[in-house]
Design a protein around this nucleic acid. Structure first.
Lengths: 234, 234
DNA sequence: CGAGCAGTTGACCACTGTCAATCTCCGTGG
DNA sequence: CCACGGAGATTGACAGTGGTCAACTGCTCG
């Protein structure tokens, strides 16, 4: 499932500013770094962890994109989020010591394993780390609430517009294009995330395209009228 | 908006076992207790805090029920949760130092104000408190994910069945009746929370009633066939 | 090069939303 | 004490968004 990677110091990590280690002064960064035993390469389509697995660590995405999902007894799968580099996976495992959902790589990915107990212990000593940890959890809660609002009160077009704007925003924050999008997920996965059917996703992409808001070619999206799209996302 | 209350020690608090202070040994409970300057009485319908307010503290519900909501620019309001005693409000304010949503009392309520920075500082020293804090945030994330699953993949009847079972569960955990429910919220608030219309809530209550699953009298629900209801909630 | 998965599009219809009328409490004030 | 007003809840009629089923296309990858 996973391939080991040679250790690379946090100090050299290009996504440190988004990670749990953000803001740590050099001396303490070293202590944090020592806790990270392993970095993994996860192949596209493989699980980083599964619902019900014993919880041992949080994971920081260094490269690639993951989807997080929940499975019902009856087999229905709900996508609860997409995580790209600099974001954290596994926060929902802390309460019950078991992962509450799945994390699956949408493309070949690399993660750092942050063993929970040692990190939490270090957070006792280092104030910056402690606040950062609480901040990241709070951030996840805020994002979840926004998704709840989307699912609870928007129609299909609004949902898709919000979804696109959100991806563009995250690309922008990472210094990437704000016009071009390469979707890492299938229509099915987008649909599940947005609480609609895959056919509806497809139809609305087509409608947006006809109205001159975007150009669609399978996973490749080019934004033509960002302003109009923003208005739709209200 | 708020009325001050005389200080009551955490050691005597009947809901301590559910609070952030759960599991603290007596000596350290005193230190925690010292941080809590104030306890408030909130009248029904009043805000505990508003979206955008500066974030200073978390709040533990001692008595009563709150709804948490998010407001859109266009005035749409989405209910994101209901909190009863022993639960925590305000965790979404930590990231941006501003409350990300509203908290409104559905009946006369009492809360303890837990000033964030002092509590976080104490969490640096007391391991139990630190873990408890992280646990409660993780718990909120898990609950949000379950709501996302409900909103993303269930039909209206399933949503209402899950809602009822969830309330019953929480009552059970608190030693209250598992057959009788007094709803503290309006049909409109239930509807918003479940991502449907209030008329749909009303219709499905009627349908459940006709099928002999429950008896409905406005805010008063009596469960007749819990097993069947559970099955619906799948 | 072929199989199979991903995506698009059409036809049809059901669930739920919308609008409106009515009913039932409950609190307030004459 | 009763009448009145208003908010909350129920119910009906109708309409529309989005779900379902099915056919078809075109990548992509082994």
């Amino acid at each position: 499932m996973q391939t080991h990677l040679r250790h690379t110091a946090c100090a050299q990590c290009p996504v440190r500013c988004r990670c749990v280690a953000a803001g740590l002064p050099p001396t303490e960064l070293g202590r944090f770094d020592n806790l990270i035993e392993e970095r993994y390469r996860i192949k596209r389509g493989r699980h980083l962890f599964r619902q019900g697995d014993a919880f041992q660590a949080l994971y920081a995405v260094k490269l690639g994109v993951f989807k997080t999902t929940l499975c019902e007894r009856d087999g229905r799968e709900q996508v609860t989020g997409f995580r790209m580099y600099g974001e954290i996976l596994g926060l929902d495992g802390i309460v019950h010591q078991h992962h509450a959902g799945n994390a699956i790589a949408l493309e070949d990915a690399v993660v750092c394993k942050l063993p929970y107990l040692p990190v939490a212990a270090l957070a006792g000593e280092i104030q910056v780390l402690r606040h950062r940890l609480l901040e990241m959890m709070s951030d996840e809660i805020v994002r979840d609430h926004r998704l709840i609002m989307l699912l609870g009160s928007m129609n299909a077009s609004e949902r898709l517009a919000v979804f696109l704007m959100n991806l563009l925003e995250r690309q922008h924050a990472r210094g990437l294009s704000t016009k071009e999008l390469i979707l890492r997920m299938t229509r099915q996965e987008i649909a599940s995330y947005l609480g609609i059917q895959l056919e509806t996703v497809s139809r609305i992409f087509s409608r947006f395209s006809q109205r001159g808001l975007i150009q669609v070619n399978r996973r490749h999206i080019r934004v033509i009228d960002a302003h109009q799209l923003m208005r739709l996302a209200s």
